[in-house]
């Protein structure tokens, strides 16, 4: 028996499969069982509605303006917030990369990410409220006469998405920009390029592919906004986001088939945007920018 199994072992080992490789199996099986399988199960379940044909859930969703409207309401939040966060991250990262005490700033910025959207929403309810510090300060400086309404509407959710989203995009952008070899910019500076054109012709082309990935991650995150849209927004009206509609279908109507269908629609919109952005990313240079050690 051992003689017959030995040559087989050797060929497997030659292909890189041995005892150590098998250590990957438990984790891989776990992800297949609890991530891939539920996704496929949800997809199939979404085609087996409580009533109607196999497309029943989807026709129900797309014939009800209160439901399909959630796609637009969510996009209206997620797209501007993501673009704003990236537009803010790039100039800030360009300045911060030369800073000596970077760590203090990055530690403060990692706070809102760690605390999570529920806590940020609870904090903003007080802070942005009519008697909150923000409105008080604006009145004190004479910028406004009476408190402006920033909670329980679109802007409350928008601000909460900036507070949790900006640090995320900023930290990604910073790690990307710090990875660019300073010699590239020094060479351009020696040739007489000013900061503006150094950024336009050297840094920007190098970070565009990374920014595309950052955009995808941040957009997908913002598109699935849930707690802050409920706590800080108007979940029955202008911030009725798609994830809230899905959770309602699951936990208020106990229609898991419909809820899965909404989750699948959510995934399609997310992947659609990610695919679009990544297709555009292919047009740019994506090689190493580190220089030396690569």
């Amino acid at each position: 028996m051992s003689t017959s199994s030995r040559p087989r072992r050797r060929t497997l080992a030659d292909r890189g499969i041995d005892g150590v490789t098998l250590l990957v199996l438990p984790a891989a099986l776990f992800v297949v069982l609890l991530f891939v399988y539920p996704f496929v199960y949800g997809l199939l379940l979404s085609f087996a509605p409580k009533e109607g044909g196999w497309l029943g859930n989807y026709t129900k969703f797309f014939s009800d303006p209160y439901m399909y409207g959630t796609i637009w309401l969510t996009l209206r939040l997620a797209l501007p917030v993501t673009l704003l966060n990236i537009a803010l991250s790039v100039p800030v990262a360009m300045q911060v990369r030369h800073m000596r005490r970077q760590r203090l700033l990055t530690t403060i910025l990692v706070l809102p990410i760690t605390l999570g959207t529920v806590l940020v929403a609870e904090g903003l309810l007080n802070y942005l409220g009519p008697q909150g510090w923000l409105n008080r300060t604006l009145i004190l400086f004479g910028l406004i006469d009476r408190p402006i309404r920033l909670v329980h509407n679109y802007w409350g959710v928008f601000i909460s998405l900036v507070i949790t989203g900006f640090p995320f995009t900023f930290l990604l952008t910073l790690s990307m920009i710090s990875g660019i070899d300073p010699a590239l910019e020094q060479a351009a500076a020696t040739l007489g390029a000013r900061a503006r054109s150094r950024f336009r012709h050297i840094v920007l082309p190098l970070i565009v592919p990374g920014l595309a990935v950052t955009f995808c991650l941040a957009f997908v995150d913002a598109f699935s906004v849930f707690p802050s849209a409920v706590m800080l927004g108007a979940p029955a009206g202008e911030t009725r986001v798609i994830s809230f509609a899905a959770a309602q279908a699951a936990f208020e109507q106990y229609d898991y088939s419909y809820a899965s269908a909404i989750a699948m629609i959510m995934a399609v919109v997310q992947f659609g945007f990610v695919g679009l952005v990544l297709a555009g990313r292919g047009l740019f240079y994506t090689g190493p920018a580190g220089g030396g050690k690569g």
């Binding site: 991530f35 949800g42 959770a247 989750a263 959510m266």
Partner: peptide, 10 residues
């Protein structure tokens, strides 16, 4: 939340 709903269903 996207994979959580099908996961919760399972």
């Amino acid at each position: 939340i996207t994979f959580g709903i099908p996961l919760a269903t399972v």
